[in-house]
């Protein structure tokens, strides 16, 4: 059959609803993950830098780097993943800088959040939106 414009709108509305719910669920799981790290403390938006591509060629391997001078640990959260936890960097005595790079999986276009716990007990948070493309043959 041919889809009419009306059919497309109805389908679109259904899809939007279907997608909307899990995004809410993920957001709350991310909030929980962040709260578990910070203990619910307020976070500043200064003193932490997250480098991630604006567009990831493949969600399987997305290079990210995070840096927060003076941090004791940094957590990375992928807000759009089924499980938002990505990793936690804990810096030891011989750490040369409070920074790290890794490669991560992103289930789709989403916001990646980094939160640092500073040596003085304060917290800093930043985020970056990464668009994950859906490939033709290569993806």
């Amino acid at each position: 059959m041919d889809y009419t414009r009306r059919d497309a709108l109805i389908l679109g509305a259904g899809a939007a609803t279907a997608v909307f719910m899990p995004i809410q669920a993920f957001a709350s799981a991310s909030d929980d993950a962040i709260a578990a790290f910070t203990g619910g403390a307020a976070t500043s938006d200064a003193g932490i830098e997250l480098t991630a591509p604006e567009i990831a060629e493949n969600g399987n391997t997305v290079p990210v780097a995070v840096s927060a001078p003076g941090a004791v640990s940094i957590i990375l959260i992928a807000t759009g993943n089924p499980n938002p936890d990505v990793c936690t960097f804990n810096f030891g005595q011989f750490s040369g800088s409070q920074s790290g790079s890794t490669r991560i999986r992103l289930a789709g276009t989403q916001e990646v959040v980094a939160v640092a716990k500073m040596a003085d007990g304060s917290y800093a948070q930043t985020s970056s939106v990464v668009k994950v493309t859906i490939g033709g043959c290569g993806g």
């Binding site: 493309t133 859906i134 490939g135 033709g136 043959c137 290569g138 993806g139």
Partner: peptide
């Protein structure tokens, strides 16, 4: 050219 989001 692009095939969906892929650069051919």
């Amino acid at each position: 050219t692009m095939i969906r989001a892929d650069h051919l």
